[in-house]
């Protein structure tokens, strides 16, 4: 041919380069975790050692006992779990009905109401937490489970409607049309035909609800006061502000409460991503 070109060892080199970059990124991701994990396994003296070690000299699970599994912390996690369950019931029920209404039904003022609904996505959480706090005090629901569940549900509902509506829109129209021809009433249609088909959508929505509440700090902080009502992230935060920082137990609590979520994510990736890309709109 025209030019005599040498063969390509550089192809092999680029491949190695790719893997190196990816490994570097993985390292970047893991470094904070690894350091926290390593701390959580150290004895209090070792934590305070002047020369830090990545690998603990003696593995001490005591921090987990004191930090993660302490009665106080378990209570925090339990509260979060209860909030998740409560919010799942309330928000999913409200959202799936509303999503169906948006996708398939007509009602007066639909366009305006939908516009208002979507506009809430532009409201940053931090902007409303102070008046929300005042409102809850005025209504005498401050520091109650009810307020927490109601607030989370309200915050999640617009995003859930958006997410579920997407799933409803992707259902083949022929199913509902043939049901209509068979004389099925619209109400029945929703419960018997559409809802069962929304299982994947509801699964993604549930993941979003769980993750949002488990990870939320601002809303929980504004609405709870006493330790027995506190949610997870607020509880973690209180560890820091209350008694100087005991890094060992704190890291144990931190890692211990995050790890299950990360592992669940590893196994349910698609669901998480579906839910989160839907929820990313709110941020």
């Amino acid at each position: 041919m025209r030019n005599t070109r040498r063969p390509h060892p550089s192809a092999w080199l680029t491949l190695v380069g790719f893997y190196l970059v990816l490994l570097a990124a993985v390292l970047f991701v893991l470094v904070p975790f690894l350091w926290g994990l390593s701390t959580s396994l150290k004895s209090p003296q070792e934590v305070l050692a002047t020369t830090p070690h990545w690998i603990p000299e003696h593995i001490d699970f005591g921090n987990y006992g004191r930090g993660l599994l302490s009665e106080k912390f378990l209570r925090f996690m339990g509260n979060s779990l209860l909030a998740v369950i409560g919010a799942l019931i309330v928000s999913l029920t409200l959202a799936v009905h509303a999503a169906y209404a948006c996708a398939r039904l007509r009602f007066r003022g639909k366009d305006l109401l939908l516009f208002l609904l979507w506009s809430t996505i532009m409201i940053p959480t931090v902007a409303i937490i102070v008046p929300l706090y005042l409102l809850s005090v005025n209504l005498q629901v401050y520091d109650t489970r009810f307020a927490v569940i109601a607030a989370y549900s309200a915050m999640l509902v617009p995003t859930l409607i958006w997410l579920l509506r997407g799933f409803i829109d992707s259902l083949p129209g022929e199913l509902e049309e043939s049901a209509l021809v068979d004389g099925c009433s619209p109400v029945k249609m929703f419960y018997v035909i559409v809802l069962p088909l929304l299982r994947p959508g509801l699964a993604a929505a549930s993941v979003l609800v769980f993750l949002t509440i488990w990870n939320d700090f601002l809303l929980a902080f504004s609405l709870t006061l006493r330790d027995e009502n506190r949610l997870l992230q607020v509880g973690l935060h209180s560890y820091v502000t209350e008694a100087g920082i005991e890094w060992g137990p704190l890291m144990a609590a931190t890692i211990g409460s995050t790890l299950p979520v990360v592992i669940a994510f590893a196994f349910l990736q698609r669901l998480f991503i579906q839910g989160l890309t839907g929820g990313a709109v709110k941020g």
Binding site: M1, R2, N3, T4, R5, P7, H8
Partner: peptide, 16 residues
């Protein structure tokens, strides 16, 4: 081979 030269390792661009 193109014109007698082995091109197994050549990129599409090089093969013209």
């Amino acid at each position: 081979s193109f014109d007698g030269t082995p091109v197994n390792d050549w990129t599409p661009k090089e093969r013209n």
